[in-house]
Amino acid sequence: MALDFTEYFERYEAVVADVDAVFRKFEKDTPELVKCGKGCSDCCHALFDITLVEAMYVNKMFNEKFSGMERSEILQRADKADRQIHKLKRKVYKASQEGRPASEILMEVSKARVRCPLLGDDDLCALYEHRPITCRLYGVPTSIGGEAHTCNKAGFEGGVKYPTVNMDIVLDKLLGIGKDLQKGIGSRFRELGDMLLPLSMALVTSYDEAYLGVKTDKDKKKTVEVEKEAAPVELKAPGAQPNPESEACASCTESKSACATCDSSKTIVLGGTDED
């Protein structure tokens, strides 16, 4: 039976609705500072990761909308972008191993430009209605870990106080959905909900039972067998004789002291005595 992610996608869409409402408020209150418009694709070259529920949602919408040559072209661009990102992350890892300051490395990463595979030749997003949350807030002041960020093309000036979107709160909500999803589908990957990945990888991934670590009937059977093997075992003490009346004793309603065959000294229970 196919996995059903409806509950988690609906919760994600609720977060999206809240985020869109915040962006519209910025547009209404500070229209001269928000410079986003059709054809502006600065955010489509930014380097960022998305959460598990975002990745699965975008993947679903992409698979529903595209087929044929158009789909193949986007997947080719996704593969190209993924290889660029991989090289960049290797470069960052090498720099960290060399002991370069974190601020210097982050500055270098912030300047990296990787074209989003969903950005068409017309500089428009091919999946605009279902774009990730980072894309939806790009262009207004945000804060991550207490540090402010905004689009270079926006009219917001450095050193001036503006209302700011706390991305840590948004991220916590998205990670929370991912963790609930991991538990809900019974994934054996405990850290699945904490996953962050590039949008390019989200497009080329198949979010099936194998990838998500969902236990199959075979896995469940193994778990039951292991549990049976781990169950408490009653061992006979050396020299003890088999008790022919064990079945009768099990259904007996009398006190054990009334039965001569009930001799606790003849058995050893793993984990301690009955008195323990």
Rank of each mutant, 00 (worst) to 15 (best):
A250F: 13
V53S: 01
S143V: 04
V114P: 02
K153M: 14
F26H: 06
H45Q: 09
L33G: 03
M201V: 15
L196S: 10
A248L: 14
F23Q: 02
K80M: 00
V15I: 12
D168A: 10
V226W: 04
E54D: 05
G139Q: 05
E254H: 00
V15R: 06
E73L: 02
G271D: 11
T205G: 06
S257Q: 08
A46I: 08
D208T: 07
D42C: 01
T267S: 11
R71K: 15
S72D: 13
D18A: 05
M69A: 04
K60S: 12
A21M: 04
F62S: 08
Y138R: 13
D82W: 01
E104M: 06
F62L: 07
P117A: 10
G186T: 07
V16S: 00
D122R: 10
F26N: 04
V34C: 09
R11A: 12
I133Y: 14
G186Q: 09
G239M: 12
N243A: 14
R131C: 09
H130G: 03
A250D: 10
G159A: 10
T51D: 02
F156L: 09
L3V: 15
G37M: 04
Q76C: 01
V170F: 06
V204I: 15
I85N: 01
F26L: 05
C43I: 01
K28G: 04
E10M: 03
N59K: 02
P163R: 02
